[in-house]
Design a protein around this nucleic acid. Structure first.
Lengths: 342, 342
DNA sequence: GGATGCAAAGTTAGCGCTAACATAACCCCC
DNA sequence: GGGGGTTATGTTAGCGCTAACTTTGCATCC
């Protein structure tokens, strides 16, 4: 009220700044800054007037200026290998849900399973001066590792476990592959095939679990295993089944490294009139939403992807606050879901 | 060479800056800036020395400072309603592929189909001072529209068309729904059901296309239509089929608004021993990767989502460069894929 | 009633970079 | 051989904000 100039932001010119708001309210810029960032430091009535002015002028803070002045960007970079995979999308959702209320913006990068792309993305995103970084797995290439080390920014790895002292939240990929295979063995299957695509480190570790379980049972036969570097997909599942049945026609069960492969296998079985699970049992991995609804319902491994995002984000919050998390490694386990397809 | 100080960046202290590089090379900061941003302005030999120094010191530019000094952030914000939907993921990939080589970083926001979340996200992302904005559809709420207007940043809308003068790249949702229904009618189906979930504006428009086609043929019956506000999913497809068959057991075809619904319907038909397409034809929408591999293969509508991302990003590049695109609206069409499920 | 303390607001300087202008160096040509 | 142009580099200032310190105002207490 009283003698306030009523300039409204001049259209077409530069955006409204803190100084504009300050002039409008009749206080100094720092007071506006405080009212917005540390409201407790400003008297109620003044804060009220400031809030009104902000709204009236349509003030939008400039993050670049804030970041430059405070050396904190309030941004967190998350790199995932794929956005086409529901696993990572669920994790991203959890991360956003955890970080956003705490004032951190999530910057998402899709590395497409390519360490080179991951390095490039990381390099670009470091320019944003993130306060924290969330990575998938430990498969960074040398250049990326060097970047990370010299950037010296709190970092948490997701999905996998490791005891090198790096912060990580996930589950044992090896164990989960082992357990699912063990489960098939316990059900009486003896000629168990394995189909994998993409061949990222986690896929490979699950394959190792499969192999270990079969070796232990004296039933491992290399020709029952097909690993394909192409991305995982339903079509890939159908193709790989064809290939597998050609080189090992007597398989009685198949461990598909991903539910989408399993779906492709299932449809291909329908086309070939192979009864599931009577003639061929099918198991998948990840428990995608659809997997409960296939016909027959798909046996799979439920992975705690939302929880991983939550716990990793919370661990990162601790690190960004300069505190030490209780432990460097959090194992969130996995769960076998035995359904009608096995 | 010669008398260069060999200080290496002091670990633990603040990051290496342009000035550090300048001091190391023995030139002024602006020259380093130029060597990195406009290499043609610096002599080859000097640029070589600068590049070496940058590598040696591990210099990472500070985007906040750059953005503040130049009033250009080299960032583009993209808001999509969902990351669980392959449609938007493919569009995002196209956008990144188009913008990244041109020096723009893509900031991804997931609005979860909620206009309120979209507004909040937009508000936050505007703090990054994006040079351009890509939005999905036109369903921004009032506050978001006001924000957009006063921010005065080049904006392109994706997926839908509109003739209000806003820039957009997409296809006619109404027409595609109409065309698919028409196709079913031409095949001789007379009691065509419609299943929709999510009920976002695009879903609704496709439903209107369905209705128009049936009305035109004198075959529209409201009880054959079910629209559910919950997100689309395979499980939802199974549930909605149950509901539909309860209120309209004599349907001879079903238009599912999304391929994942169609997949759920297909599995549910298998469970109920309903022959597809003999007893019930099924059509989906979007042509997800899996749709070619279902049993029977799914009739669906292929949507040009990658092309939409490309064209929208290119249009945005034009706008950000201050040029006028040839037209405000680009219709990329759609394609009926008639397969065995109808 | 003046020293003390605390709360609320202000002043100053600078984060790291680049726009805009200034200068220096060199070339060309009549 | 000096005006005019071109190219390569430097100087200055400031983008919008906040950290750190300073000032002001006011209540409190012996």
């Amino acid at each position: 009220m009283s003698a306030m100039t009523d300039r409204k932001p001049r259209a077409g010119q530069s955006r409204v700044t803190l100084n504009d708001v300050a002039a409008h309210v009749g206080v100094s810029a720092i007071t506006i800054s405080r009212a917005l960032n540390k409201p407790a430091l400003v008297t109620d009535s003044l804060r009220q007037r400031i809030d009104d002015a902000v709204r009236q002028l349509g003030y939008v803070p400039n993050r670049a200026a804030r970041s430059l002045a405070s050396a904190r960007s309030h941004s967190v970079v998350v790199l995932v290998p794929s956005l086409s995979n529901a696993v990572f999308v669920d994790t991203l959702a959890a991360i956003h849900d955890t970080l956003y209320p705490r004032g951190y913006q999530t910057l998402i990068g899709d590395t497409r399973y390519a360490p080179q792309d991951e390095e490039t993305l990381l390099r670009t995103y470091l320019e944003y001066n993130p306060d924290g970084i969330l990575l998938t797995g430990f498969d960074q290439n040398d250049a990326a590792s060097t970047l990370l080390r010299s950037a010296d920014i709190p970092t948490v790895h997701m999905m996998e476990l490791d005891d090198s002292g790096r912060y990580c939240v996930g589950f044992s990929q090896f164990d989960s592959g082992y357990a699912l295979t063990r489960q098939l063995l316990d059900k009486g299957y003896r000629r168990i095939g394995f189909l994998a695509a993409q061949l990222d480190p986690r896929t490979i570790k699950r394959g190792e679990g499969y192999r270990a379980a079969l070796r232990e049972a004296g039933l491992y036969q290399p020709h029952r295993e097909i690993a394909e570097a192409q991305p995982s997909s339903v079509g890939q599942g159908a193709r790989l089944l064809d290939e597998l049945l050609r080189q090992a026609p007597d398989c009685d069960a198949i461990f598909c490294n991903n539910d989408d492969l399993a779906l492709g296998v299932m449809f291909e079985c329908q086309r070939r009139h192979i009864a599931v699970p009577q003639q061929l049992a099918i198991a998948g991995f990840n428990n995608l939403e659809m997997s409960a609804w296939t016909n027959p319902a798909l046996t799979t491994v439920a992975t705690p992807r939302y929880a991983i995002g939550q716990v990793a984000a919370n661990m990162l919050l601790e690190l960004m606050a300069g505190r030490q998390p209780d432990s460097t490694t959090v194992d969130l386990g996995y769960k076998l879901l035995v359904r009608d397809s096995t």
